[in-house]
């Protein structure tokens, strides 16, 4: 069974919520990757979303944009990231999900990318600029057993959410803002109802992400879904050496046990 799917099932069995942090591969140099992954694993994260830096990240806010630029400044390439993950795969147990834009994958070559992901033990992929209409182009990733995570947003109609969740694998990534990553106009009154609606329709766990940055956000959001994804805040914490705040966020996600 896919390692990510298994980790999420274990969460459900333990009646725990999932917590998936996002880090930018190569931010501060690729040699930091192993220690960051091990830190997140030890701190109780369910899986890690590993960002691939891209020159034109349209779905990302300033924090992730800057992290991407820093990483590109370090000379990070997708090839180098995959090589590094292959090197450390026996020492790191936590499931890894790639989050990268379609052009990075296409430039790498879809076949080579899929093969190398399998060798590196990558469990899933999130391609934020590929809606279901264009997913067929990337179907070889799915058939190789790597889950392709789908996103739903506040602007997705009920019919569309039904269509997206119908073929979903791994988990559904429910975007909690009308905006980009790190956005702060979060948690209008409609959020709880929206997450509930997605949960009713989805055969797989529903994780909420975008704009979640404090333990309060985590506690609020997690009541209506199966877990959270935190990105910009995690990057800030690693950047400023405040790793203990990451642990606080993870703890906040574990406080609420499903009743």
């Amino acid at each position: 069974m896919n390692k990510l799917t298994k980790a999420l099932e274990e969460c459900q069995a333990k009646q725990e919520k999932a917590f998936i942090p996002y880090i930018m591969a190569g931010d501060g140099g690729l040699e930091r990757l192993k220690s960051q992954l091990l830190f997140l694993e030890k701190s109780g994260a369910t899986a890690v979303e590993l960002g691939i830096p891209f020159s034109d990240p349209v779905a990302d806010g300033p924090v992730i944009q800057q992290a991407g630029l820093r990483s590109l400044g370090e000379g990070t390439t997708l090839k180098a990231v995959l090589k590094k993950v292959m090197e450390i795969k026996n020492e790191v147990n936590i499931p890894i999900i790639f989050m990268g834009y379609s052009n990075s994958i296409l430039a790498y070559g879809l076949k080579e990318f899929t093969e190398d992901c399998l060798h590196a033990g990558i469990s899933g992929c999130i391609i934020p600029d590929v809606p279901i209409e264009e997913e067929a182009m990337f179907s070889s990733i799915k058939t190789a057993g790597i889950v392709l995570i789908r996103l739903v947003t506040l602007t997705s109609s009920k019919d569309r959410i039904t269509e997206i969740t119908a073929g979903a694998e791994g988990f559904i990534y429910a975007v909690t803002v009308k905006g980009i990553t790190g956005a702060r106009n979060v948690f209008g009154g409609e959020l709880g109802g929206y997450l509930k609606k997605v949960k009713e329709l989805s055969p797989v766990p529903v994780l909420a992400g975008f704009g979640i940055s404090t333990p309060e956000h985590v506690r609020d959001t997690i009541q209506s879904c199966d877990g959270v994804i935190v990105g910009s805040k995690i990057i800030e914490c690693f950047e400023t050496g405040k790793e203990e705040q990451i642990q606080e966020l993870i703890r906040a996600s574990k406080e609420l046990v499903r009743k």
């Binding site: 209409e133 997705s156 569309r160």
Partner: peptide, 12 residues
Amino acid sequence: GGRFVPETLMAA
């Protein structure tokens, strides 16, 4: 061609 955009824009 196609529509390589974040899901948020699909409705628009």
